[in-house]
Simulated assay, not measured.
Amino acid sequence: MAEGLISVAERLDKLRGLLSQLGLDGVLLTQQANVTWLLGGRYHINVATEDACATLWVTQDRVEALVNNIEAQRLADEEELHVDQVHVYPWYMDEARQSQLDAWMAQPGGATDHQLGLDLQRLRMQLDSDRLADTREFGFLLAEILETTCRNVQQGQTENEIAGILSMGCLRQGIEPIVNLVGGEKRAIRYRHLLPTRDKITEYGIVSVGGRRNGLVLSATRMFCFGPIPKSLSARYQAVLRVEAAFLAGSSPERTVGDAFLRGMTQYQKEGYEKEWQFHHQGGIAGYQSREVRAIPESKVVFQVNHLLAWNPTILGVKAEDTAVVTDRGVEILTKTGNFPTQTVSIGDLTLDLPDILVR
């Protein structure tokens, strides 16, 4: 296991408590989000897959793993896969894998993580205190890579080149850039998801990253401008920062995601952009997926202390995004360095220093 055994034991206790609550004796974990939540580490080969490269069978007194012979030694050596028993099957014998799965599921009182999707999501979403310090360090590092990329961009570079710089910075630090978006002035006013192209950036750009480390995903966006920021761009960016602050102000313990969403919608209206929220999702609760809960006005999910937040409002040509954590004293921004220009934004009782557009 890639983390301390005590930490894993605490998560096992939570999982076993859920099984008891549901009257179950065992659960089959196949999804990467659930396996990495429980064990930490890298349980994937293809970064785009949802399935883990190890399947876990968790009961009240045992944890067993099923892995193929390609991955068994790596997981033991590099991801510290320490469970009660590891079943290894030849990669070319699907029947051997299926036989073990059938044996587990033949036991009474078993369920799969697909069947327990929402229950497991609730466990995953509340970040354990032992992971909070590591997540703060991860957030700083991700922001540093993103901001360094923006500081080093050269006028006339292509979006693809900038995305490559961002990707290299992440991978050097053991972070997988599972979302890597770069767009210049031509495309930023047309699209919300800026998958990079060969277009050259000559005026301003938006760079967004979703970085994954040990299964946890943090997100952030920064903007840069070559020369003075046009007044219209600055006005829209200041407006989107206030919308982001409104979302964050509404993300307090015991309030619902829907409450926060409505507060953000109200701020869009105050800024004169009443319908902009309709053109792009606004983010929500983050975790072991880029968004564990994608916010909508009707959401009844209740914020809890140690929930991760990643709101990402947009207005035509501008975007604001950082990852924060809910605390009993408000929200704490995690993706910050203190080395990037900021604007002080106040919404109600909440005052935040949020990233400004970097002038190059």
Rank of each mutant, 00 (worst) to 15 (best):
T256E: 00
R212W: 08
Q282C: 04
V293C: 09
S208R: 13
H280V: 10
S208Y: 12
S219E: 13
V243A: 01
R212A: 15
G258P: 06
I285L: 10
G258L: 04
T256P: 04
G210V: 03
A286V: 03
G283F: 01
V243P: 00
G215N: 00
L216K: 08
V207G: 12
Y237M: 09
G287K: 03
A220Q: 03
Y268S: 05
A235V: 14
F226A: 01
T202V: 10
R242P: 01
R291K: 13
R263Q: 15
G250D: 03
E203Q: 13
I229F: 11
L216W: 10
E244F: 09
R236Y: 01
G227C: 06
A220K: 01
K275Y: 11
L241Y: 06
E292N: 09
A246N: 02
F279G: 08
S234D: 15
F279H: 10
C225E: 06
R212M: 15
R212S: 14
V243S: 02
K231M: 13
L216T: 06
L241W: 05
G215I: 04
L262K: 11
L248S: 01
F226M: 03
K231G: 13
S232K: 15
Q289E: 14
H281R: 07
L218F: 09
Y204C: 08
L262V: 10
K270A: 12
V293P: 05
S234L: 15
K231P: 11
G264T: 02
I285C: 00
Q269N: 10
R242C: 06
R255C: 02
G287R: 00
P253R: 07
F279R: 11
G284K: 01
R236K: 14
T221D: 07
Q289C: 12
Y273W: 02
L248I: 06
R236D: 07
R222F: 07
E274L: 06
V243I: 12
P253Q: 00
V293K: 08
A235E: 15
S232M: 14
S290L: 12
F224N: 07
A239C: 07
T202S: 11
R236G: 00
V293R: 10
P228C: 02
R294A: 11
Q282W: 02
R294G: 14
E292H: 05
